[in-house]
Amino acid sequence: MKNSTYEKVAGILGGMGPEATVDLLNRIIQLTPATDDNDHVRCIIDNNPKVPSRIKALIEHVGENPGPCMAEMAQKLEEWGADFLCIPCNTAHYYYDYANNAVSIPVVNLIDLTVKHVLETNPEIKRVGVLCSTAVISTKLYENGFGEMNVEVIYPEESFQTSLLEVIKSIKAGDTGAEVQSSFANIVTNVIEQGSELIVIACTELGIISNNVSFPLADATKILAEEIIARAKHV
């Protein structure tokens, strides 16, 4: 039986997309206070790029439901020894209940975690810009959380949101070059000009290229990495 000093093992439902999963692992490593290998967090990662496309299912309405695949991944990670699970994909949280209901261990909800972090660190905030996939907009994942606290969610205007989806697709294809970064900078400017007081990076792909943004940010990937470390080490 695991005792109270046992360091918990994180299970990661990865591959949505693969580079975003690697980015999360890098952040866990970078944010963990460590002087030796043993100080780092043990992670069991199912880096599964074969999860059915969330974009095809939610936007194009032609794709397979990703939920059952995510549930199977969650069960396997529990069997392999994970003490808690996380899903480093904002869009996939539309299917959160599939994973959560498939296991007996906790599943971190990235949307709830990010909203809570923003509200706790910015208690007076009234307008939040959210950069995310179009599927997250259509499912109102962030609007529901922020709306309960009367915080307005601002998205890029339609043409900029179309560009943002192309940026996300480019990053998934391995392109993080100057053109992609320039397009992203223009999108950031658009939500700032609409009155955003802070921008939530609510797509794990976007976290890969958001390091140079000087405007106040809440990066969901960084928030998740910090939560994983805290849970693993009982902080």
Score class of each variant (00 low, 15 high):
198 L>Q: 06
126 K>Q: 14
149 M>P: 02
200 V>I: 14
16 M>Q: 06
209 I>M: 13
161 Q>W: 11
22 V>H: 01
110 L>P: 05
221 T>A: 09
173 A>H: 10
211 N>V: 03
39 D>Y: 01
102 A>E: 08
183 S>P: 00
36 D>S: 15
58 L>D: 10
173 A>V: 08
207 G>L: 03
148 E>M: 08
32 T>V: 10
13 L>D: 08
142 Y>C: 09
7 E>K: 15
173 A>L: 14
5 T>R: 13
9 V>C: 09
20 A>M: 05
88 P>W: 02
87 I>M: 15
178 A>P: 01
66 P>G: 05
15 G>M: 07
145 G>L: 12
132 C>D: 02
120 E>N: 12
86 C>Q: 03
204 T>G: 00
21 T>P: 07
3 N>L: 06
19 E>V: 15
139 T>I: 04
24 L>P: 04
3 N>T: 13
10 A>F: 04
132 C>S: 15
123 P>H: 02
152 E>H: 02
163 S>M: 14
146 F>R: 08
1 M>H: 09
14 G>Q: 09
96 Y>G: 11
85 L>G: 10
49 P>S: 09
50 K>N: 14
15 G>A: 08
226 E>N: 14
130 V>A: 02
114 T>V: 12
200 V>G: 04
133 S>P: 00
10 A>C: 15
41 V>Y: 01
27 R>A: 10
35 T>W: 00
168 I>P: 00
185 A>I: 07
34 A>T: 02
112 D>M: 00
189 T>I: 06
232 A>D: 05
24 L>I: 06
159 S>P: 01
69 C>F: 10
160 F>E: 15
107 V>D: 04
11 G>Y: 06
185 A>R: 15
130 V>E: 02
224 L>D: 10
209 I>V: 14
5 T>P: 00
108 V>T: 13
170 S>V: 06
115 V>Y: 00
83 D>I: 05
85 L>E: 13
159 S>V: 14
221 T>D: 04
89 C>H: 06
23 D>H: 13
76 K>P: 01
181 Q>H: 07
